[in-house]
């Protein structure tokens, strides 16, 4: 028994066009794909929409295609399909690892890549029952006017906690979005705002329909890895999640891309990462990297684990992954 599901009407469009039209007609409508995030939140009274548009029956969203331009993954492809795909595991390992780390296998069988990118931001003052939040005077993200995490601030500090976004970011992914005026493509980082209650830059009638990954180039391979910090080996959301990719040039210089989730209201690509040259000394390079991360992440008291811990472990895990990839790519 839990709080009863609020009433709503469900529509089940068969095409993207129909889904966009439905959203356009119902500005308060919400998309549902796997439902693992949305329904859990609805059961806690966090979603008030009277109209759900189920996009799980749209065939084209389930397509995955390896072409010469790269890999296109339909937004409705499940995380289970992604972590079971041998090519993704070989060519885009961070993405497979990130998918594999989400919740439990039952969730991964339902949850979609599009849904994971849109996953609601999380906070211990938000992901609670109606009684709880009401007793606490609600919060900035939902029905209230104060952020309990940072009461003097003017924005919601809820943390973006999707695992896939950083893995996609370090692989230079573009997102394909459909709207009433057709489709558009944006770099994945452009999808997000650093604001817990307004974290997605999507119009109300837009749908993510696919992600596009650049083709794997065996001549200039990109190696990657993802790791999340969490207390338990399953179920938990990331306290910090770090994806790193590494591309070695002919000169031996290695270019690293590092992206972080779980610490801020948006997943983000680390700025000012300098390329690594063997002559620099790995330890010094990693020490600088650690400082860079600690400066750019901004964990708040949105989890029961200490914010400082999330800052330190984001840096430590990034160092660990970077070291591993740099050693791997130089020996390979």
């Amino acid at each position: 028994m839990s709080e009863p599901m609020p009433p709503f009407e469900l529509s089940r469009p068969q095409t993207v066009g129909q889904a966009v039209k439905a959203l356009n007609a119902l500005p308060e409508g919400r998309l549902i794909a796997g439902g693992t995030d949305l329904i859990a939140n609805m059961r806690r009274g966090l979603v008030e929409s009277k109209n759900l548009i189920d996009i799980s029956a749209i065939a084209e969203l389930h397509e995955m295609e390896f072409g010469k331009d790269g890999l296109r993954i339909g937004a409705g492809v499940t995380l289970r399909e992604i972590c079971n795909d041998m090519r993704i595991r070989a060519d885009y390992p961070a993405i497979a690892q990130a998918s594999d780390g989400v919740a439990g296998p039952g969730h991964r069988a339902a949850a979609t890549i599009g849904g994971n990118l849109c996953q609601d931001t999380r906070c211990i003052y938000y992901n609670q029952s109606h009684w709880w939040r009401k007793s606490n005077g609600f919060c900035l993200k939902f029905k209230g006017d104060i952020c309990h995490v940072a009461p003097t601030g003017r924005r919601c500090r809820a943390a973006f906690s999707g695992d896939l976004a950083p893995a996609l970011i370090v692989h230079g992914t573009n997102i394909q979005i459909a709207g009433p005026g057709g489709t558009r493509r944006v770099a994945i980082a452009e999808l997000y705002n650093e604001d817990g209650s307004d974290y997605l830059r999507l119009a109300p009638d837009e749908i993510i329909i696919a992600v596009h990954l650049p083709a794997f180039n065996p001549m200039a391979p990109v190696v990657s890895a993802y790791e999340k910090v969490r207390m338990r080996g399953a179920i938990d959301y990331p306290l910090a999640g770090v994806a790193v990719s590494c591309r070695r040039s002919n000169t031996g210089e290695a270019e690293l891309q590092i992206a972080v989730t779980g610490t801020n209201s948006a997943p983000f690509l680390l700025k000012n990462v300098s390329p690594f040259n063997a002559g620099d000394g790995l330890d010094n390079y990693l020490a600088d990297l650690s400082k860079l991360i600690q400066k750019q992440v901004s964990p708040q008291r949105t989890t029961t684990a200490a914010a400082h811990y999330r800052r330190l472990t984001a840096a430590a895990v990034a160092q660990r992954l970077a070291r591993k990839l740099l050693l791997e790519s130089s020996s390979g």
Binding site: T36, I39, R43, R80, G104, G106, H107, A110
Partner: peptide, 22 residues
């Protein structure tokens, strides 16, 4: 209260899924 414990796991088309968030 939704998707946290797995006690409601059933098979849908042979795949294990939590029925409490379906």
């Amino acid at each position: 209260d939704g998707g946290e414990c797995g006690a409601c796991t059933v098979l849908i088309d042979g795949v294990a899924r939590p029925s409490c968030i379906t």
